[in-house]
Structures are given as C-alpha cells and as structure tokens.
Amino acid sequence: MAQRYGGDHSPKKPTGPSDATKTANKFRGRTAHQSDIRVKLLFLAPVPLLFAAIGELRAGDAFGMAAELTAFITLIFAAYLLRDGIKAQAAFEARAIARAPKIPRKLFAAELTGVGVMLASFFGWHLDLIPSFIFGIIASAAHIVSFGLDPMRKKGMGGVNEFDAERVAKAVDKAEALLRETLTAAKRIGNRQLEGRVESLASAARDMFRAVEEDPRDLTSSRKFLSVYLRGARDATIKFADLYSKTRDADAQRDYEALLADLETSFANQRETMLLENRSDLDVEIEVLRDRLKQEGLRAGD
C-alpha cells in the first residue's frame, strides 16, 4: 500500500512509530530471493516440443503427439521441481540448524529431465533406443553437474544432541509458519504503519529463532515464545484485521499497537537473555583454555 511521503522535518510530520519504538531494518535476517537465469531457460527449452506435437497432429500420428506432449510435461515438471529444490536449498542454507528437505527435488528433477529427453528423442526424433537412452543419461548427468544435488544431511547437529536439534528444527518450522500467517493477516489491515510494526515484530521473532538454533538448550525457555505468544499474536492480528478493515476503530488500534510493542520487547529481551548465557559459556571456555596455556608456560607475556 502507498505510504505518504514525509520525513522528520516535513510540514506535516507523519504520525509513525516514534524513534523509541522504531526498530531496525525490517529486511534484517531475510535473504534476497535468488533468481537463476538457468532455471528460466529450462522452462523455455522444451517449448519446440509443443510445436512438434502440433506437427504430429497434422500428420495424424496420435501416439506420437501423446508421446511428445508427455515429454514436454516431464521437462516442464522437472524445471518446476528444480526451482523448488533451489528454494528449499536456500532455506536450508539460511539456517544454523536444519533438516534435509523431505523430497530430494533436484535429484528428481535431474532424473525427470533425462526421461523427458529420452522420450523426446525416441518418440519424437525417432532415434534408436540406445542413442535416446544415452542422450537421457547425458542430460541427467549434465543437470546434476550444473545444479548439484539437494542437501541430504542434517545440518548443524554437531556438538549438540541430535534429538534436541531435531526438536529445535521442528519448533522453529512451526513458529515460522505462525509468523507467516501473522504477516499475511497484517496485509489485510490496510494500514502501512501497522503493517510495518508487524514486520518488525517478525524480524525480532526471527532473530530469536536464529538464537535458539544456535543453542538448542535455549529451546525449553523459549518454547512459550515460539508457540503461545506467536499463536496469540496471529489470532489477535487476524481479529484486529477483520475489525479494523471495517470500523477503523482507533481504540482497538491503540491496544493492538501496545500489544505489538510488548511482544516485540519481550522477544528482544528473551534473545538478549539467551545471548548473555552464551556469553558466559564463552567466558568459561576462554578462561579454561587460557589457564591451560598458562600452566604449560605458553602464555604470551608470562
């Protein structure tokens, strides 16, 4: 939605959140969506098969047409899978602790591309079976070399109990889903400033997710934040959006804003507490190692 232009020194100062409540950049902690020209080209490359299918129609070869259309659909589907696979990999890489995607999409995309090429060269181009097969294999191999395979292993589970890490990954997935629903609901409010407040709440929450991922021991103390509070925020946002889009109720807006501010502060505080604990862990670690060095007479300046 459009936002009226105006800064601190404009004649009509916008009545946005004051500096005290303003939080950091809402894009913090969010990665840019990667756009890969290669994937787009893969959507385009099979298009001649459509024309070939029309040619078969003209020649009266129903079977050939069906085969060519199947090859076309297979290749397009492979490109879709590849795109989703790349997205899933980006999500995987953005996190400190992550489970491997359930479906190895890039691998399936490579196989389907091979099958599509095989179908197109055998039924469309009328090559022999063996050359078609070899083309298919080469296409699959080139696909794997070019785009790689999916992350197959869990990440960031070293050093911590695997069971704990799994629990963290699950809890963060759920919390992330709640957050997305909240953001979707906030779009319906139709007030750019409130929407911005919800976004900054979201980035505070995401900061906390990352902190929990880095140290799964914090999960117990943050569970309330990840589920109860976020669910409450989502429900409140949905109800407020329903009400506010109809009535523009100023009281409700004030209450809602107060709620958002409270939530954001408590998320930030929780994160800070967790980081402080990490800090004391670090201090202990450093202390122990330095003592050891000192004992062995290796410490500089001694």
Binding site: A45, L49, G55, A71, V117, A120, H126, A142, F147
Partner: peptide, 30 residues
C-alpha cells in the same frame, strides 16, 4: 552462490540436448 564455469558448461550441454531433441521432434526422423 556463484555459478562456476564447469556448471555453466554442463548447463549448456543440457540446454543443447533438450533443445536439439525438441527440434528433432519437429523435424522428424533423420
């Protein structure tokens, strides 16, 4: 992540195979 030259080469091989087999299907038997 940046695309390496090897990945680009493999990609062009893939693209050429797909495009040729698709155009081959238009042209019909060799």
């Amino acid at each position: 992540m940046r695309t390496t030259p090897l990945q680009w080469t493999a990609f062009f091989v893939l693209l050429v195979i797909i495009v040729f087999s698709a155009f081959g299907a238009i042209a019909g038997p060799v």
